[in-house]
Design a binder for these strands. Structure first.
Length: 423
RNA sequence: GGAGAGGUGGCCGAGUGGUCGAAGGCGCACGCUUGGAAAGCGUGUGUGCCUCACAAGGGUACCGAGGGUUCGAAUCCCUCUCUCUCCGCCA
């Protein structure tokens, strides 16, 4: 969320930036600033009241010590009125603070001023295209037919034991998955990330910290009996590892990577979007997260984007990079690059990664700060990106590399798969 | 799942109703000392909020979290949570 201080000090700038995603924050800001004024007044009044009460308590103690219980009793009775009004004030303070917070969580992150204004993916700005488009015959197959032809993935078996959107990988299909996971993790280690293996169940606090809660709960599987959620992305676990921390400047940057199975309800999706591997309820993803000094976050966003692009280069997949327009960006992001690979069998671009700078938006929710020497405490910036999400990578690999002899495995992967062709 | 013991500042650890934001130690920072270092000595060493100039100073809150009792709570009571030990179960 945005901070009240920011809203107060940079009102105009934030309003303009929010406008880029067609969010009119005028009323929110007015109300928040008014409530914050009230909050301060109440705080001042309450603190004064408490100071008096503390003073009285001290005096009563002294009187008892001197043995003057008569005076002490008298003084006691004088405190009751103050006690009641201080209780009232602290309730009022609490209510006001809650009211401010409940408004703050409704406001999305303010886009970076370079974000193109727009409403949908049509308005995204393609900033890079790379790689050779596959040269496939007209009768090239989509991945779900290839998967069946070579017994790599069984969607119906998955539906039998779980439901649609839960595929079963087998044989070389399963090994390809495992190879990709290892490959992506190894690359991240080379790039200086520390590997983690987090839980896949998360508590509500974690979901709140990274912004999935309160309003995206319908996209997550919820375990009612234990009040936990199946994580939709390792971003949640990794970023929340540092929730409520006050870091030393020297600890920055923090670079983490994790492979995790991800779970999404995907309510409302249909048609060709959910065909085959295109959109699943359970999928595998390697995620990179960085906790950064605010001065570096935009430079690092570019680095992370280049890093992911490098992975796609090595997998020999044609891709393009889109800078998302305001209307297409996620709630929590200030700037997002999407990576899309071209999948020749379906003849479509598939999103395989999304790399974002959240600036201090998550840090404010997470209460994640750092301190540099004697300087004031300030919020860190958080960033993350998929590096990469497996299913659509698998789809593109299968489709683009199909030949009459079988499916060729890119050179970079052969050491991980142990085979260079699926036939 | 059952029984018991605990959660105090960066760390260890005292503190069972008042003078406790909290002894003592370690660590860290600065200074003195030294040719230099160690030892030694001295000083300092949390965060949020309010006031204020986001200074100094002052006020207030925070001893796992949230409630309660009391003039006054780290200290008593209740609920929750986490850790440890034993039993049960189990990959």
């Amino acid at each position: 969320m945005l901070s009240v201080t920011d809203i107060r000090n940079n009102t105009k700038e934030l309003l303009d930036r929010l406008e880029l995603r067609n969010f009119d924050a005028h009323e929110y800001f007015d109300e928040i600033l008014a409530l914050d004024g009230k909050r301060k007044e109440t705080q001042t009044e309450l603190d004064g009241m408490l100071a008096v009460l503390n003073q009285h308590a001290k005096e009563i103690g002294d009187l008892y010590k001197k043995g003057d219980s008569e005076q002490a009793e008298k003084k006691k009775s004088e405190t009751t009125a103050n006690k009641e009004s201080s209780k009232l004030l602290s309730e009022q303070l609490h209510t006001t603070e809650e009211a401010i917070k409940s408004l703050l969580v409704l406001i999305p992150n303010a886009p970076n001023s370079s974000v193109p204004k727009g409403n949908s993916s049509k308005d995204n700005e393609i900033v890079k295209e790379s790689g050779d488009m596959p040269n496939l015959p007209e009768d090239a197959l989509p991945h779900w037919e290839l998967a069946e032809k070579y017994s790599l993935i069984d969607f119906e078996l998955g539906a039998k034991i779980a439901g649609s959107g839960f595929p079963v990988y087998r044989g070389k299909g399963a090994r390809l998955q495992r190879a990709l996971i290892s490959y992506f993790l190894d690359k991240a280690l080379e790039a200086g990330y520390t590997e983690y293996q987090p839980p896949v169940l998360i508590n509500p606090e974690s979901g709140y910290g990274t912004g999935q809660l309160p309003d995206k709960d319908a996209q997550m599987y919820h375990l009612e009996m234990d009040n936990m959620y199946l994580s939709p992305t390792a971003e949640v676990q990794l970023t929340n590892l540092y929730r409520d921390d006050l870091l030393k400047f020297e600890q920055l940057p923090i670079k983490m990577v994790a492979y995790a199975q991800c779970f999404r309800r995907e309510a409302g999706s249909y048609g060709k979007d959910v065909k085959g591997l295109n959109r699943l309820h359970q999928f595998d993803k390697v995620e990179i997260v960085q906790i950064q000094h605010p001065d570096n976050s935009y430079k690092v966003l570019e680095e992370m984007t280049d890093y992911v692009a490098g992975l796609l280069d090595q997998l020999e997949l044609p891709y393009r990079v889109a800078k998302l327009c305001g209307g297409d960006m996620g709630f929590t992001s200030a700037l997002t690059y999407d990576m899309e690979v071209y999948s020749g069998g379906q003849k479509r671009w598939l999103e395989v990664s999304s790399i974002s700078n959240f600036e201090a938006f998550q840090a404010n929710r997470l209460n994640l700060r750092f301190k540099e020497g004697d300087k004031k405490v300030s919020m860190v910036h958080t960033l993350n990106g998929s590096a990469l999400a497996l299913p659509r990578i698998v789809a593109a690999l299968l489709e683009n590399n199909q030949t009459p002899d079988g499916i060729k495995i890119p050179k970079a992967l052969v050491a991980y798969t142990g085979f260079d062709i699926i036939n």
